[in-house]
Design a protein around this nucleic acid. Structure first.
Lengths: 382, 382
DNA sequence: TATTGTAATGCAAACGCTTTCATACATTTG
DNA sequence: CAAATGTATGAAAGCGTTTGCATTACAATA
């Protein structure tokens, strides 16, 4: 009783749904035109007479016709889907970016297929293969640190793709993102300009996270450039509990520490939490900065000074880039985005004795460069 | 220079990539078998002789053949992709679920196509249409509160689908999730059992969020069942800032309030933050519970008593259900999952005098309205 | 040896669309 | 008025698979 009711052309195998699905042929017949014209009326309306266009539209309506994606994809070699591979959606920054990208693509009639690599290159490679096989029109990767076979596959396939979340210079693969090293360099300089000379770095694992690694490098470079002693860098797994432990390690090992630069907000939250537990006053005794500007950063006690990524702009540009490439137009293959530095309550001048030390150091304390920090430097200096 | 180099069968239009893509025919030729056999060797190996199977496998390897998803989908009526429509990925719970589901499906060779509705039914309907057109083998929706046209579309299409995040009873559409009403009922009872009689409810907007609405109902029911005065329910937009304001409203309006039940952790964090600002001791003066058990819940000050959702199990079951339905097997159409209640530091017995006050009866005219004076009043009453 | 059954294979027809190419007609131009 | 140009349409050839059915090969049985 559910299996009958097939249309006139004998199908050579039974279909899933009970009622026969409408096809373009049905629409064409009803509109009194050929399939070719029906197809054109739907996809390239400017090619058909207004009157015909309307007839087809009506037929589509009346039959509630829905085009068959696979058939369309096979015939036109366009799937209207874009692949995105993130390390994980559990990280708010990636989830939010995926969301924004999905919305943007949607407006252009594209879908987003999401896969996650769990920071595992082999796994990522497989995902790329799988997506390629599934059929996508473009692909987004996070960062440029991927398996060589992956790049090879991607290049061979001729698929438009772009990397995000890290600006890797002009000569690299197409990329859109901030320069993590530079942004964290600037953030670190903010601390130095406040008078801090003994700065620790707290980071999640950098081995398979080039963004984090770049940030650590930025902090190191900045501290080095100011002729300060090499920072103690503590690296912990990416959980709040580990972050707390990391903070403890940092302060235990460095009696004179007056500031901790955390490579992301998660680490910073852990640091803040642990300071509270240890009775360390932030920013009185210790200044803390983060990176990402998660929603809660504004509401912690004290609120967190951090770096905000231009996620919306990044996703927008990623979408634009891909669509351009898909349509054969070309687009700038490298776009550097700027983050903004958000000063809140977790940073301040080092406690007195530390400042004395700072005076002794090279600390050129030149004018600040980070656009947004300018305003703040003033208030911080008050 | 990139357009030439076509294979021997004249293509009737130029393809995107430079090097000709391998097709099944190439594999078949190389393995010395027909396309049919090659196809079977790949998809249903048990149907071909071992030796042939190996020859085909080798050919696939050597030519680095990748099947054409669209063609396969057209011929087999299976796209190997599942659609998921969430309100937003910005909510950790949805992002995490998407992640887990994606991983689970992946293991079975399926991809996840994610769309978000932004809590907008019309938008959701369009997403469903779009996904249907794209071609998916199954679909996941959040909750059962959707546009009627959406259900209609879904039923007509005959597509396997399931709703998650809310158990809606046996008679409803297929669903897998917790009973939000009941879980929050239980959470509220926990407060009552501690001795609280004056409980406020803080929630994000319930209008387009049946889960939240169900939780509020659960709290109301529980409070009613214990013959306590109807709770003050404050509903605010879903941001920390609004949550803080909501908490303030709650305590200002209800002088004798000793507990606040928040319908999700975000609200609870806001409540906690605002209590800190107002100098309200949690749990000394006020107990707070949340819902979701986000990662930070364990690390707030005080840590948050909350309800943990079985997200992993839910996603796993959703995947299993869909795959079963796709393969024609049937599966239990309604699965109720149980949440777990996590007791942490944000809850405790109500302060002594408050209990006495509550005994007196309804929540009229507590004399003290401003938070700061209230605090004093309370401690003075001890 | 003839017969039957089974396991492997191949042929060719879908799958439902897009797009090339040819055709028909209407319009402009020399 | 013929020729040239342009505009809408339709016929039909794909697109790269899967799969129903027929056929073949081969072993087992009579």
């Amino acid at each position: 009783m559910t299996q009958s009711q097939q249309g006139e052309p004998k199908r050579h195998r039974s279909r899933r749904s009970a009622k026969r699905k409408m096809r373009l042929a049905d629409v064409a017949r009803r509109a009194g035109v050929s399939e070719a014209t029906a197809s054109r009326a739907i996809n390239r309306p400017e090619l058909v007479r207004q009157e015909v266009r309307e007839r087809v539209a009506r037929a589509v309506q009346e039959l509630s016709y829905v085009a068959h994606g696979a058939a369309r994809a096979l015939a036109s070699d366009r799937t209207h889907s874009i692949g995105l591979i993130v390390p994980t959606l559990r990280t708010a920054v990636f989830a939010e970016s995926a969301e924004i990208l999905q919305q943007a693509l949607n407006r252009s009639g594209y879908h987003l297929i999401i896969a996650s690599s769990e920071y595992d290159k082999a796994r990522e490679y497989h995902e790329v293969r799988a997506l390629l096989q599934h059929g996508i029109d473009g692909m987004v990767l996070v960062g440029q640190d991927h398996a060589p076979e992956l790049w090879q596959l991607l290049e061979r396939s001729g698929l438009p793709f772009v990397t995000a979340f890290q600006h890797a210079g002009e000569s690299s693969y197409p990329c859109i993102g901030v320069d993590n090293r530079q942004e964290f360099y600037d953030a670190t300089r903010f601390l130095i300009n406040l008078g801090h000379t003994n700065i620790g770095v707290l980071t999640a694992e950098t081995a398979s996270n080039e963004r984090l690694a770049a940030r650590v490098a930025g902090a190191r470079d900045c501290i080095g450039d100011h002729s300060l002693p090499k920072p103690d860098v503590v690296e912990v797994p990416s959980t709040l509990t580990d972050a707390r432990q990391g903070l403890r390690r940092l302060v235990e090992r460095n009696a004179h520490l007056t500031a901790v630069a955390c490579t992301n907000d998660l680490m910073a939250f852990g640091a803040l939490a642990e300071c509270r537990t240890l009775g360390i006053d932030v920013p009185g005794q210790l200044s803390v900065i983060g990176f990402d500007d998660l929603d809660i950063a504004e509401h912690t006690q004290p609120s967190l000074t951090t770096v905000r990524l231009p996620l919306a702009e990044q996703s927008r540009r990623v979408g634009e880039y891909l669509l351009a490439r898909i349509e054969g137009r070309d687009a700038p293959s490298s776009t550097r985005l700027k983050a903004s530095f958000i000063v809140r309550e977790s940073t301040g001048r080092p406690p007195e004795p530390a400042r004395a030390t700072a005076q002794r150091g090279t600390a050129d304390a030149g004018p600040l460069q980070t656009p947004s920090s300018k305003k703040r430097a003033r208030s911080a200096a008050e």
